[in-house]
Design a protein around this nucleic acid. Structure first.
Lengths: 343, 343
DNA sequence: AATCAATCCCAAAGCGCTTTGAACGGCTTC
DNA sequence: GAAGCCGTTCAAAGCGCTTTGGGATTGATT
């Protein structure tokens, strides 16, 4: 059934060595022989056994993604599918497989060690870094190449990451709202422990402070970014004594909830209440239209996935490169959800 | 650096055979020896090399998921993350890895063959079957165990699948709306080519026909289930001469768009317009509240993921089992989005 | 004619594990 | 005391590939 090197070389009357070399593009094999080999391989639909090849080369030709599933927050990140699509496309082009491990967060450290010791991957992408994330030190200790999607601010060491300039994105968005006259600006942020959320908060408070606008904790929310969370937060804040006139939202999904709350309150988006959303350009949630529905700071998570993957592949191929960072800037695009503060 | 069997057994003064057997729970090794071995293994943080193990056993201890990314529909399915979470949890419990291949749909056939020949997986989960899906015959020919999430109606052969009773779910939902007096019921369906969409359509038309309500093609839409699609479809249909009074929606995300269109038209959900949504129980889109926002036919895609994974693992461990199918029934739960047809 | 370099090819070792077949002591059994 | 058996351990082969360290053959050079 399964064609293998031994069979194939026998059928060609060549040694395994020669066939292997012909297939892998080594120069010391006659061009005519190479053609013969390639044709036979194609004819038999031959693909070298990945495990055997890996064993011989010490390369797994695979990259690991560890997806922590916490017991409390049992949410799976909705940006994950699009990130994977971007990364996967890069892996495919370079002949790498993608190995996913879904792991209860208590066992996450063990999962990384295991992936490394088992040798099933050549490198790892780290998702959802916390501000002070122990995984970075861990991976450095293990000595497995890795790229972080995002950053861990307080990690101190030098490592490879690819992140969006979240601070600046939110600072600019806040300034944009301030310019429109808004002073009561709510921030519907992601989970507090996440590094990106901390940076977004900083951008927001920086912008307010620079203009001498007080930061009101009552206008700041942090949680997992579900539609229901956006809705509940906005509803509360709009129902308060001194409601917000504008919202900054950390995700499109939460923004849908915010919009719902706005409309339920009988208010009009972009007139009575302004919203700027962060937009990951998820394929199933396009902020579409000639004039986009939402004014947004936008950066493609799919692109981020591709960049992380490409960087990791580089790193696997030459592990002794100096660490490199890549900071993506989010675009601020104006849509229909913002307007001057109502008088 | 990397501890291996040879090292470990040398340090213990035992043969590789004995150590291997001790670790794998074979009975012919003295309990005292086994304990010694287990302790040493733990102390050195030893994990057998997966590739070597795989090569020796002929088992990859990994399962493949092929994610086709089409050039036209460049959407990544948003239910994917939750499916993966469910499946991944099962894999983890059984010690299997999950290998993802993102593949342009033109190369999908090649991708399956490759996975099989390379021996990098022991089995495959098939996603998003079309009504007449060539992948099933292909996988049967290849001889790799597989489980389909969904079904391919016109495939004819017997194979393992796990699906929701989409026809019945939509038939019941339609009947529910008919009972409330609705006669103009719109169907905002998924992509026409998808098997699940065909079944949902059938459930819908069956219910209508049984009550003698004519099927109006103007009320039926098919496309990828984005928020924008839900919005645009509902807007059109509500703006028509003879608008619908109720909507059936194939996904929560599309339903959010429908709701938006309803509210934009100055109508009230559950009073002026009724909506029943299909709810996959995505973790970031819970149809929450004491009374759920939407009346919904509900079935957890995460559960489906787990069931597919468990079935596939069974199948890998004993490939000669007869094919088995598992039809999940969706619950019809009443929420705030439905009410009697307005007079 | 002898040497050399270039070209093409091969046998065999090795990657880290499992598994077969056999060996070795110590016991019982006749 | 020989035979048989059980419980425990081992040496070695083999999984399918890459790669090292040559070995032929050829044509060109001395």
């Amino acid at each position: 059934m399964a064609m293998n090197l031994k069979e194939l070389s026998r059928s060609l009357g060549l040694s395994q060595t020669t066939v292997s070399r012909a297939l892998n593009g080594y120069p010391e094999v006659a061009e005519s022989t190479r053609q013969r080999v390639l044709q036979a391989a194609a004819a038999h639909n031959y693909r070298p056994n990945a495990r055997a090849k890996g064993l011989a080369t010490g390369r797994a030709m695979a990259v690991g993604h560890v997806i922590p599933v916490s017991s409390q927050h049992e949410m799976v990140n909705p940006i994950f599918s699009d990130f994977i699509a971007g990364a996967g496309e890069a892996y495919m082009r370079h002949g790498y497989d993608m190995v996913l491990s879904v792991v209860p967060d208590a066992r996450e450290e063990a999962a990384y060690r295991e992936l490394a010791m088992k040798g099933s991957v050549d490198g790892i992408i780290v998702h959802g870094p916390r501000e002070d994330d122990p995984r970075i030190a861990l991976l450095q200790e293990i000595g497995l190449p890795f790229v972080v999607h995002g950053r861990a601010s307080r990690s101190g060491t030098d490592y490879n990451w690819i992140d969006v300039n979240n601070r600046r994105a939110f600072q600019r968005a806040t300034e944009f709202l301030l310019d429109l006259g808004h002073r009561r600006i709510a921030l519907i942020n992601g989970l507090e422990s996440m590094d990106f959320a901390a940076r977004r908060l900083r951008g927001y408070t920086d912008a307010l402070s620079l203009r001498g606008v007080p930061v009101d904790p009552a206008l700041i929310r942090s949680d997992e970014m579900t539609e229901a969370y956006g809705h509940a937060s906005a509803r509360e804040i709009l129902g308060a004594d001194d409601p917000a006139t504008a919202f900054l939202s950390a995700s499109m999904i939460a923004s849908l909830g915010i919009r719902r709350a706005v409309e339920e309150a009988g208010l009009r988006l972009g007139r009575d209440v302004s919203v700027i959303t962060y937009d990951d350009e998820l394929s199933y949630l396009r902020n579409g239209g000639v004039v986009p529905t939402f004014t947004a700071t936008r950066s493609s998570v799919r692109l981020a996935g591709r960049l992380c993957a490409e960087r990791l592949i580089e790193l696997v191929q030459d592990p002794h490169q100096p660490a490199r960072q890549h900071l993506l800037e989010a675009e601020l695009t104006v849509g229909g959800s913002t307007g001057p503060v109502p008088q």
